[in-house]
Write a protein that binds this DNA or RNA. Sequence first.
DNA 1: CGCTCACTTGATCAGATTCAAAACAAGTGG
DNA 2: CCACTTGTTTTGAATCTGATCAAGTGAGCG
Lengths: 268, 268
Amino acid sequence: MLIDFNAMMRPVCFSRDSSGEKHDVPGICLADRIGRLMTLSAEESSALAQLEDRGRLLRRGSALLRLNDRAGEMFLLRRGTAMSYVLLRDGSRQILRFHFPGDILGWSALAFRHSLETVVATSDAEVAPFDRTALIGLMTQNPRLGAAISALAQLERQVMSDRLATLGRTDARGRVAALLIEMRDRMSACGMANGDEFQLGLTQEEMGDAVGLTAVHVNRMLRLLEEEQLIARAGSRVTVLNHGALAQMANYVDRNDGVDLEWLAPAR
Amino acid sequence: MLIDFNAMMRPVCFSRDSSGEKHDVPGICLADRIGRLMTLSAEESSALAQLEDRGRLLRRGSALLRLNDRAGEMFLLRRGTAMSYVLLRDGSRQILRFHFPGDILGWSALAFRHSLETVVATSDAEVAPFDRTALIGLMTQNPRLGAAISALAQLERQVMSDRLATLGRTDARGRVAALLIEMRDRMSACGMANGDEFQLGLTQEEMGDAVGLTAVHVNRMLRLLEEEQLIARAGSRVTVLNHGALAQMANYVDRNDGVDLEWLAPAR
DNA sequence: CGCTCACTTGATCAGATTCAAAACAAGTGG
DNA sequence: CCACTTGTTTTGAATCTGATCAAGTGAGCG
């Protein structure tokens, strides 16, 4: 996709935070996310909760962070989905990562003066903003959490490594397959999938920008996978019919069962 | 490149550690590396030095970490170069990262039971091995260093993000150009380049495995760049003649001047 | 000297892009 | 409720980039 740089200048639109609102999907907090990886003490949970004292609602398409924003602000994604991308000089876009509830947004600017990526919500979403100094403070106060959060960042990095291998060494069909499996697995992990069926909240153009293909070719590959009975599509919902075959052609490896934080000191 | 899985079974060859040996190039320690980013107190420097009490020499081609090794061992690369790669199911290889003196190797296994990558020395090298628990211990004892090390990991991640964008959205010529500039800049940063001239210690096959091309096509792109007077080659040494044009076609952005760790609390 | 490994070059082929146009869906305002 | 707009998906045809296959060159080494 080619980007119109003028469009980047329009103001960021945030929905107003209406704290009394009710939601059908409960938000996920950072303690939930980390708690899935290791046992947390009560103090640790409450320390994590302090990062999330504020909340903010976003509409689909609104930006949380933009290229060259002053670095410092970070977010915990509590509900909904988001993505990070960069714009290249020639105007093309590369989507780097998709974010799901429990993910920390804004990591990438940790060591820089300005943000190097743009992060936008790909659905209506709820985030908890905090400052990076608060995060570092937390990690300082509570080193075991610090290690856990570092490990969390490492998991994110692994997703990127895998995508790198996909882009470098897999053909178009395999890349689309890889994207579908990744999305299913990650949605499944946070309760957003219904078995093998899920709502892939992406346009084909976005899919292409994630895996390095044109939207036209993504379309062809989707219909090919459908024709081969590996997936089924109904509107914007996708069902994975043959996980094994998809994983094979995508060179996909599920990383979740290899995760291990047990070696960190046990909770006191 | 297609990998022969049998060949993976041959034993790892480590050179013997001869601690009395002399080297023309001085090793770089972690304190040097971090010290370039922020001011370190004497205590911090000595804490970092403790990670490196042991040293080990490696010959070109020997493996430091291999896929599925039990996770835990990490290394500081003090002298020489290395690379990390993954092997896909179909036997193809994707090189994920190149390592230079001052880099920490083995980050990727931080959150996993087993290593997900293979790390190999691409030249004779010297490393300091340590255990990940020692690293976490250090970060716990010395939170400011912990933040710095996290930031360092973030810098590495940025290199991968950039490569991802290169693979997804740049043509073959641009990818080769990107690789050359990246190598020059990183070598330059650790004193391994002579101005715009440097020894690219990679075969064309390795270059291809890094940027998702065949060795044959890498060759053609190199000669094209040479013909266009953007680079010059003499044996295995490369000279960048037109940095601007290369950066343009590679969509390259130098990240170094954006690095900022000043926001971390100052040294006590 | 003969081996191996990396590099080089040409010819052919397949996969992905590009360009163009049409079908479709959802939303807007009259 | 319909006409209109906008954005997404679908399909076809032509083109081009990079892969594949094959063969030859050259340097270093036992």
